[in-house]
Design a protein around this nucleic acid. Structure first.
Lengths: 246, 246
DNA sequence: CGTTTTTAATTTGTCAGACAATTGACGTTT
DNA sequence: AAACGTCAATTGTCTGACAAATTAAAAACG
């Protein structure tokens, strides 16, 4: 994307975020004037958010901010922290040792986060315990600067919850890849299992509304303790229902 | 989206699909001329595909078609058969041995399908091969009568595709549970792996629009060959400005 | 002839201005 | 009060243009 595009998307994201869901955005000429760009460039940026389902454009009527889903579904469709999930499915959990360190990013991490290789990142690792037994192990990689030193010191729960509570930058969605990995020595020790035993792994990219990855995470789950499910619709995805609040 | 936009995106998608990955697309003026639209409209459509990660635009160098991942990748939001998925991404898979038998249902199956215990069910098992190596093993349990003997004889692909093609009863959605299991002797033999090795497992209930479970299935996947992902939406209203009206 | 430098064409990013078609609010009429 | 016509507003689309950097061709040089 272009140089100015990044900034434009970010500023447009803020305007969208500060518009109550269901409300109409200012007209395109007005927005373009306010953002200091041409209407063509603005429309391209808006197409980005339209593709993501954040806004809905109705010809000759205006552009509306989409209403986020009203009901909280159980399952993977809605992003929630493991802590929230665990307590909801009746697991009384506690947090094991937390490891927080600032270090330079690996090439893979830099690529995932869309940052320069070698830029510093914050590496947060923690385990989730139930009855003194680890059932989940979570690794969060966030670019330096996203979380301040003060926030890091007072860190108690999940990175996601911290970002949600803080409210900025506004979060959009998480792309979560599902996989199975064999426990290496480190993971086997953490979970108290044999090396090579299967673990459920989620690799996730957390996106802000401006399309930037703000958190790159690995979550390992001991089989049997969590039950993730997803509702898969039959048919095509295209043409999402407007779902506008009047 | 506009009237012509849908058609434009479709035609542009065909051009992108027919361009070898890694190759450069024709320049924007040329594409616009070929598609009979203005450059501005073309660029909006291209932004759509850029958002989806299908193409990559490099300023002053050209627009390139992204290399699709080598592994089978699909979002879980939409239900489709492994066969359809494979053909859609151009992967050559074949079907291994198919086992179809009619037998009485187990208590668990009867409960899942909402039928009387002991009612007969059809048990369909098959493996998916790529280069003579099993990468998936699928078990479908459907109530007797859902699939006729004739349909069973001519069975070639997936149960889901059969039901979709038939059109009746109309299908609604599938609830899919994600888990990790250790390969037992049977699965280890099928996949050519060690007993105890981890396998990704989907346990799914396929619902008709009338809410009845028409298919209860177990799908086992060899790690590394499939990449399932799901987009998780942030479940929190992101409106920093409280909506004081209403 | 091979290598390096210069030049020109190419390509995306962006802008300004314009027109069409339809909507939705407003005023008017019945 | 309800139905109707009017008109400003809004998105969709088009044309034409320029800037900046890349890329390939051409030219210069040894």
């Amino acid at each position: 994307m272009g140089d100015a595009t990044q900034g434009l998307q970010e500023r447009l994201a803020m305007i969208i975020a500060s518009t109550p869901p269901g409300d109409r955005l200012p007209s395109e000429p007005e927005l373009a004037r306010k953002l200091g760009v041409s209407r063509a460039s603005l429309r391209e940026a808006m197409r980005f958010f339209e593709t993501q389902g954040v806004i809905h454009r109705r010809p000759r009527a205006g552009t509306y901010v989409m209403q986020p889903p009203a009901v909280i579904e159980t399952g993977l469709e809605v992003l929630e922290s493991i802590d929230t999930l665990a307590s909801r499915i009746g697991l009384s959990v506690s947090m094991g040792d937390v490891s927080i360190q600032k270090r330079v990013s690996s090439p893979e991490e830099a690529s995932a986060l869309g940052i320069q290789e070698g830029t510093k990142v914050i590496d947060i690792r923690r385990s989730i315990l139930t009855q003194k037994k680890a059932v989940a192990y979570l690794i969060d990689i966030v670019p330096e600067g996203v979380i301040s030193d003060e926030e890091m010191r007072g860190f108690q729960g999940s990175v996601l919850d911290l970002l949600l509570r803080r409210g900025s930058p506004p979060l959009q969605s998480s792309r979560c890849e599902i996989n199975v990995v064999q426990a290496n020595r480190e993971l086997a020790k953490i979970f108290g299992i044999q090396r090579g035993d299967g673990l459920l792994m989620f690799k996730a990219w957390l996106y802000t509304v401006s399309g930037q990855v703000i958190d790159y995470s690995f979550s390992y789950f001991l089989p049997g303790y969590f039950r993730f499910h997803v509702v898969r619709r039959v048919g095509q995805v295209f043409s999402p229902t407007p779902n506008l609040s009047t």
